[in-house]
Amino acid sequence: MAETDPRIVVDGIDVHYGAVQALFGVSLTVGAREVVAVLGGNASGKSTTIKSVLGLVRPSRGTITLDGAPVNGQRPDAIIARGVASVPEGRRVFPEMSVYENLLLGAYPRRHEAREIAGDLERVYEAFPRLKERRSQLAGTMSGGEQQMLALARAWLRRPTLVCIDEPSMGLSPRFVDQVYEVLQGWKAQGITILLVEQNARMALELADRAYVLQHGRVAVSGTASDLASDPQVRKAYLGAA
């Protein structure tokens, strides 16, 4: 991580939902071209962390910097405009729009580059023949796994340098989980920086360079993915080892 400046620095943020506090002084960094996973159980604050980075919730304390500039309190569109894409929790494709329109909306921030978008659409269709087949079908009528592929492809059409991904394996069959991670491995190979929130620690640690484990809104453990994968406590709590 030392050779370049970090892309994301989260420094001691607190987040409140009304009277409930979800994060307590969470700090993390994501370096350039790095894949960082945030792990943890239900209600540990993983999703809140990624939502804070995307500007969907506003920390009450602490700072978040993106490429050296503070982004606290900025709207999501301002953050997305800086080369960020998001794959939201639960896929969140637009159910009453066609697959084609969903993909196109991924490219919304660079909507004036018509020719590039057309070329990138072709590349997506090549990589995901399923989506090509179904391009005029309503997204809401596809299976969960297909919707997840669509959400990934939609984020890729942003041509981001950094992607925030919230629980990409949630509710998917093992076959689709493998497919999702194949896609993410490809992105990693392309040099895209990834901040990944995941409950499926085994898959996430295979992909990630480093990881943070959240518990009750605090960072409990952090380290390289291989260290965490062999940490007895993490193995016991999150990897199902005896």
């Binding site: 998001s86 159910p95 909306l105």
Partner: peptide
């Protein structure tokens, strides 16, 4: 149109639309 699609996207899922960089306000 892009604006029209963004309008429909906001109608169907405002939070997802915001995460694509659409100014929902």
């Amino acid at each position: 149109t892009w604006t029209g699609r963004a309008l429909r996207a906001t109608a169907q899922d405002a939070s997802a639309a915001a995460q694509l960089g659409i100014r929902t306000d």
